[in-house]
Design a binder for these strands. Structure first.
Lengths: 183, 183
DNA sequence: GCATGAAAGCTACCCCGCATAGCTTTCAGG
DNA sequence: CCTGAAAGCTATGCGGGGTAGCTTTCATGC
């Protein structure tokens, strides 16, 4: 029985790949062990439980999303920045629906994920400074943006848009709606 | 062993009460049987599986939500109607977060729930007729409203609004944002 | 080179939750 | 009051998460 060379970091990566391919509900002990080339119980050498692994996965996802959003808004301001932020945020969620679905499930109870989430929200806040929004007004504006974008991608990735109308056009209008609320 | 007088309809009611009190994840065979005053396996005399029961529950919830939204918009038009629709929709989700969470999980795969969902969306569409919106434009407008309201209540009920800023004020601004997008 | 101990891996096992099988009991209708 | 459909029960199966405890690897120091 040669070593598989597994560790926590690699395991998180394997789990994220699995979730990307098969969906969040496919994240079972058996499926994960199979992919990692190891027997089920061996996974516990590298994680405390499936729940804690999901926490680590969520943390990684929030950091990926933060990095993507950060580079998206760099060198832009006002409408350009807000639109870039919203479009890249949506693109991440649509490309990796399984990964994205991990975040809301873990953001509240896991302090580490919550802290990483605060950094993501800081990107939202930074974009709003060009509008002179700070303090309470910035918080309300951030909530508008989050609710809108999150709601849209949740419905989109969940198959909630059944009609044949162009989803891109719908999102264009959503972006316009948010931009107008910032003036 | 006297009869408990259970049937499918009653069982759905018991399950909805359970979900209201203890949350969606508390909907287990044991908890449900305990509440219904019956042994676990006896539940299968009135349901096919927990999954199918969740479908029936989702159907009931969508109908409740549709009824609430329908009465909310009756006798109102334009801004009044849109605002009433959004506020009542949110109120339902906030008062019954467990119930509300059932819907997105079942709306896609269960055709009956999807049909009931179409009726709910018809209420959204009716409100928009006063704006002269029909066809594609109405679809896009409905999506804006759905994404915004659903996103807001998902974040709100999930504890996503950690800061102390007034959530009511945030929602007021969200309503204003949507109204402006309809002009 | 080889002894050694920490850590990776394994098999065997347990618990819990959903679900089925099949028997017993109720109770409405003839 | 007989009877059969349906409600209820206990016993059992099956699969998923998790633990116990042994075996094997392999980096380190002599």
């Amino acid at each position: 029985m040669p070593r598989a060379g597994l560790n926590t970091e690699v395991l998180v990566g394997v789990a994220l790949d699995l979730v990307d391919e098969k969906g969040l509900e496919a994240l079972s002990l058996a499926a994960l062990a199979d992919r990692a080339g190891v027997a089920g119980p061996s996974l516990y050498k590298h994680m405390g439980s499936l729940a804690s692994l999901r926490g680590l996965m969520a943390l990684a996802v929030v950091r990926q999303l933060t990095a993507m959003c950060t580079t998206a808004v760099m060198g832009r301001s006002r409408e350009d920045a807000v639109e870039a932020l919203m479009r890249h945020y949506r693109a991440f969620a649509v490309e990796h629906p399984g990964r994205y679905a991990l975040v809301p499930l873990n953001a509240l109870q896991d302090p580490a994920v919550a802290a990483a989430g605060a950094e993501l929200l800081a990107v939202f806040g930074a974009v709003l400074r060009a509008y002179g929004l700070e303090g309470s007004e910035a918080t309300h504006a951030i909530r508008r943006m989050r609710a809108t974008v999150h709601g849209f991608v949740v419905l989109e990735t969940g198959g909630g848009f059944g009609l044949p109308e162009d989803v891109e056009a719908s999102f264009d209008q959503v972006v316009t709606m948010v931009l107008r609320s910032l003036e």
